[in-house]
Design a protein around this nucleic acid. Structure first.
Lengths: 131, 131
DNA sequence: CTCTAAATAGTAATGATTACTGTTATTATA
DNA sequence: TATAATAACAGTAATCATTACTATTTAGAG
């Protein structure tokens, strides 16, 4: 399957690159529609899936049942706020050593892990102080 | 809300306790229907949700978009096979130290983490050797 | 035994995502 | 540059897990 260029795909990728949070498909759809008023939701989903398959973006699943997308494909961890649901990047070292820990007593092969942290985000922490 | 006893709920809990893998709601439904032929899927979902809310079972989300359930509520980690999709328990120490690592450069509060490991399960590893 | 509310079965609705279909746009090549 | 092949599109229908609704049944307290 040879890729052909598409303005819609560019717009989706570009929008994702401007965001440090991790929008859902629906957020991408709403935003990109400002530039392409009749882009279809299917196009957004198809391109988000395509872009993640070719490694230009990452699909993030944090247990809320909705996929989030991230233009930062470097290996990093995410934080999910249990109060407001926002998904943030964490600046921390790689935890590859935990693969060894998990593999020690396991008969199969462990090739990686998915970890996300949860708690109260900076904004919600501030709000809590005065309530 | 005072809990009332229900045979259906008992059957769901009992079935989960017999399983070391982590069935989905649909698997529970299919199995419990052998004993209660006209139990409804809604009843299965309602009870799985209720049981997890009162801490008698755990809801596991491993990124396949389908909820799995576990009668073992003790803190432990899970492994997901990228070949066959099976979800297995891992016998390993707690990784609570990674909360500190994540919290070091973070402005909010970290109260926990979700981690699952992926790779090739023992069964699929055996199959690979002869293919 | 009676009453109240929890739980149920059956069904309809929801919400995220994927699939389908006929049309449009990109791009390789004549 | 014109043409032809096909990737990508818009619009819509379908799927799938899950939740909500409603009338009926059942548990269990008084």
């Amino acid at each position: 399957m040879i890729l052909k260029h598409s303005k819609q795909r560019d717009a989706i990728k570009n929008f994702l690159m401007t965001r440090k949070d991790h929008p859902t498909a629906d957020v991408v759809y709403t935003k990109v529609r400002e530039e392409f008023p009749n882009i279809s939701l299917g196009t957004v989903y198809r391109n988000l899936t395509l872009l993640s398959e070719i490694g230009e973006i990452t699909r993030i699943r944090v247990g809320d049942g909705i996929d989030h997308f991230d233009a930062d494909v470097s290996s990093h961890y995410h934080f999910v706020c249990t109060h407001c649901g926002s998904v943030l990047d964490l600046d921390m070292e790689s935890l590859s050593h935990i693969n060894e820990i998990a593999g020690a007593g396991f008969d199969g092969k462990i090739t990686g892990h998915i970890t996300y942290f949860y708690g109260t985000c900076p904004d919600c922490t501030k709000l809590e102080q005065y309530s």
